[in-house]
Design a protein around this nucleic acid. Structure first.
Lengths: 234, 234
DNA sequence: TGCTAATATTTGGTCAACCAATTAATTGGT
DNA sequence: ACCAATTAATTGGTTGACCAAATATTAGCA
């Protein structure tokens, strides 16, 4: 009987002061009160505000800095690192602050990022990159021929290409944009009919150009591929 | 000639006390003197042995704990957690890679975003947009001729162009990337000499193309402008 | 001798005070 | 009125001392 009580109480998690501070700072960022490039209040102010020792504040900042969310400049201040914001979960929509009719912006930006990713990927791809891309393409093809929903495999294929660019910032930006794209398409039930078949052919074409390291053709084929996609919602 | 020295010296990485301790602990583990499950000497002993303050030792332990290499038990001791040892091997190189080529990615991505922004801005600009851009350009020119630091006005000019694209996602991404760009340039004291003069001329050229709504030329002139900028740090 | 309980020591955790670098404010001179 | 140099305030960095929990040691008894 006593065991039951124990198992119930087990779920209680002690929240250390550090965790509390981290949560609060994260909320400040995700709510938009702290934007990219903004300066954090000084450690002393924060410690006073939270009613805890400065050590806790420092530890919290260190941890967030480790995640890449904050950047500390000695004797100057601590600022919010823009690219690190990506690490925050569920924050994406807040960052982009999408308002319904902005979907065109979203797609347009994706096209922009991806066409150039194809260009860079064709330029810098290693054999490992190529193998990863082909693997993702195979998974996508498998989903298509089975008639299964292939949206996830499709996105994975595209992300693999971005990965091959060796551009971490480009990768990060794609990670920001991708979830919103995905949520829209799943919500609007696009991606039906015989679209995946033609898309598959285009995927093969893109991979071929990347394999041959023909950057311009890779870019062009990616643009062609995404233009098809762009005509659907519009 | 001086350039050669610079490129040689660039590779020097300042090793903070924390990094030194991390390296030493790493060596202790990889040499087998510290096996999984072993207890680390107390923080006081370590600080005395390394000849540094206990804070450094604590920070180093925290960092290693973050990687999953160590596990601290309050009021008891710190033990080596066997699982994360693989991660420890590439730890330092990972950190260096992140800090090293990230800037290239940053600049490359900025060029990408901005050149296409110029394109879209030329296509969609309203008269109000044009006025705003010219206003920002005037402010920039004023700063340049006064010899004042013109970095902020420069960025404002670029942001105004992005604004004219009417693409909110593009705008958001630029806002994410911009602070990191800015912090780098202010830190490395670039943007000196007669650079602003030529930059000013290029700005005028960009505005001219945007005014004439010549998208391709606007894009080309923006690329030319940013390529100059890209050649500085590299 | 063997075991328990009281005690001393060691442990990581926490705090307040101080340091040097940076930034803001003030002053003094032109 | 403006600008330079000096001073004051603020910042993150660092240190040593102190705290409670955990452990090792010792004292005391059967």
């Amino acid at each position: 009987m006593k065991e039951d009580f124990l198992t119930n109480f087990r779920e209680i998690v002690i929240e250390t002061p550090v965790d509390i501070i981290i949560r609060q700072i994260r909320e400040l960022i995700s709510s938009g009160q702290l934007k990219a490039g903004d300066r954090l209040p000084s450690e002393r102010i924060l410690s006073e505000r939270f009613g805890v020792g400065r050590t806790y504040v420092r530890d919290a900042i260190r941890k967030l800095e480790f995640y890449g969310i904050l950047k500390t400049h000695p004797q100057s201040g601590t600022v919010v690192s823009g690219l690190g914001i990506i690490a925050l979960e569920g924050l994406i929509t807040d960052v982009l602050q999408l308002n319904g009719n902005d979907f065109n912006s979203l797609v347009e930006t994706r096209v922009l990022l991806e066409t150039n990713s194809a260009y860079f990927a064709a330029t810098r791809r290693t054999d490992d990159d190529l193998m990863g891309i082909k693997k993702a393409l195979a998974a996508y093809e498998l989903a298509v021929v089975d008639g299964r929903p292939s949206m996830e495999e499709d996105l994975m294929f595209h992300l693999k290409i971005v990965e091959a660019t060796k551009n971490s910032v480009l990768m990060s930006l794609m990670m920001i944009v991708t979830p919103d794209i995905l949520s829209f398409f799943t919500k609007n039930k696009v991606c039906s009919g015989d679209k995946p078949i033609s898309a598959l052919r285009e995927h093969y074409e893109i991979v071929e150009h990347i394999e041959n390291q023909d950057a311009d053709k890779a870019k062009a084929s990616m643009r062609n591929h995404l233009d098809d996609l762009l005509n659907v919602p519009n």
